[in-house]
Design a protein around this nucleic acid. Structure first.
Length: 374
DNA sequence: TCTGGGGTCCTAGGACCC
DNA sequence: TCTGGGGTCCTAGGACCC
């Protein structure tokens, strides 16, 4: 069995770079894309040009904070359609190299090349990576950073090592050495909270996680996450490159411009979101079984209320009655900053048959229900 | 200085079944 | 008459990813 070689391609400051293509006159100036493009309004940074990053601006940061750090920055609203268009071109280009392309958001993808007997997968990947970088530059007028490694985890760490316009390769034999002194936070699945908990345990680097006994990690982080930390810290990742998977949920949510007490307004907003959501379900041919509404209060405490139907549905009638009933169970004496609605447990609707009936019927769960113990 | 929107997966407790 | 053990499903919350 040949060893795997995985490539991770990550577009540099994607949203900001697409905006600069539309507005070349802004080149060289700090550019921040996020929300409505107005730092006086609520929203966060979706992307910042490298000039803006010099001021400490990072994605996820409130726009107001970004404006304080860099008052001379240009702020632009998020233009999803433009980024989706560029993203489709990007993904199509990548699919020209292999059918094993897994898109990860609009601006990232994993690739795995299929190789014939006796062919060098590693060399082939390096050639392919160079070619992709060249074509992204020449055909799209954008730059990307590429990482090559023995699996997805390592390929992604590699692409992150040199940015922008970087190219890094981590060979199997160099994995331990390369990861050892990286901050734990770099590891897939380690966010702010986990980083804090690790620090509390005296663990700051990936190498230190790797030295921690599995039992110790499992005790502190649970069996599933503990094992993941153990494996990831050693650079182990067997997850395959998956070109397509069915979505499990769709959702719509919105943050109000100002926190509000107006129950009628909140409910009306929830209704509009639900209408939008069922429209999407029908457009894309899915039905769902679980409806969840979400309310975030002014203090950022977030609650959810959910209901599961016996059968899947895409009917506005069903989904809205459920959402409205759930909404009635929410404490609305406090000010609210966000409402949202989600439909989960989706099933692809092969709706070629009678309206309301599936064209392909799955049988009832087969087999005996089990045997009672005496 | 506040903290978007769209997703995924995990955990924990309770109901319920055999 | 005194209280098992395993499995699955549902609900609520939380961490994390882009």
């Amino acid at each position: 069995m040949e060893k795997r070689v995985v490539m991770h391609v990550d577009m540099d400051a994607f949203f900001a770079s697409v905006e600069l293509k539309k507005r070349p006159e802004l080149r060289g100036r700090p550019l921040i894309v996020g929300g409505a493009g107005d730092p006086a309004r609520r929203g966060v940074v979706s992307a910042a040009s490298y000039e803006a990053r010099k001021f400490g601006i990072r994605s996820g940061m409130p726009l107001r904070t970004a404006a304080r750090l860099c008052p001379e920055a240009v702020f632009l609203p998020v233009d999803f359609e433009a980024y989706e268009g560029e993203s489709e071109r990007f993904m199509a280009m990548l699919r020209g190299y292999t059918d094993l392309v897994e898109s990860f958001g609009l601006d990232e993808a994993f690739l795995e090349l299929r190789v014939k007997e006796g062919e060098d997968a590693f060399k082939k990947s390096l050639d392919c990576a160079r070619d992709i970088k060249k074509r992204v530059r020449e055909e799209m007028g954008l730059t990307c950073s590429v990482g090559v490694g023995p699996n997805k985890l390592i390929a992604k760490l590699a692409s992150d090592m040199k940015k922008p316009d970087g190219f890094s390769v981590i060979k199997e034999k160099d994995v331990e050495k390369t990861l050892r002194d990286m901050p734990a936070r770099k590891l897939w699945g380690v966010g702010e909270k986990t980083e804090r908990r690790l620090k509390f345990l005296g663990i700051k680097t990936i190498g230190e996680i790797a030295k921690t006994p599995l039992r110790h990690l499992e005790r502190n982080f649970g069996p599933s996450f503990g094992r993941m930390l153990h494996e990831h810290s050693r650079g182990m990742d067997a997850s395959p490159v998956v070109p397509f998977f069915e979505p499990n949920s769709f959702s719509r949510e919105i943050t109000f411009e100002e926190d509000t007490n107006d129950v009628y307004f909140i409910k009306e907003t929830l209704y509009e979101l639900t209408k939008d959501l069922t429209g999407r379900l029908k457009d894309e041919g899915y039905k769902g079984r679980t409806v969840t509404i979400k309310v975030r209060y002014a203090d950022f405490q977030t609650i959810t209320r959910s209901h599961t139907f016996e059968d899947t549905t895409d009917s506005m009638n069903d989904i809205w009655s459920s959402a409205a009933e759930l909404f009635g169970r929410v404490d609305l004496a406090r000010k609210v900053r966000l409402v949202g609605v989600r439909v989960a447990n989706l099933e692809k609707w092969k709706g070629a048959g009678l309206a309301g009936q599936p064209a392909v019927l799955d049988g009832p769960p087969a087999g005996p229900a089990g045997v009672a113990k005496q």
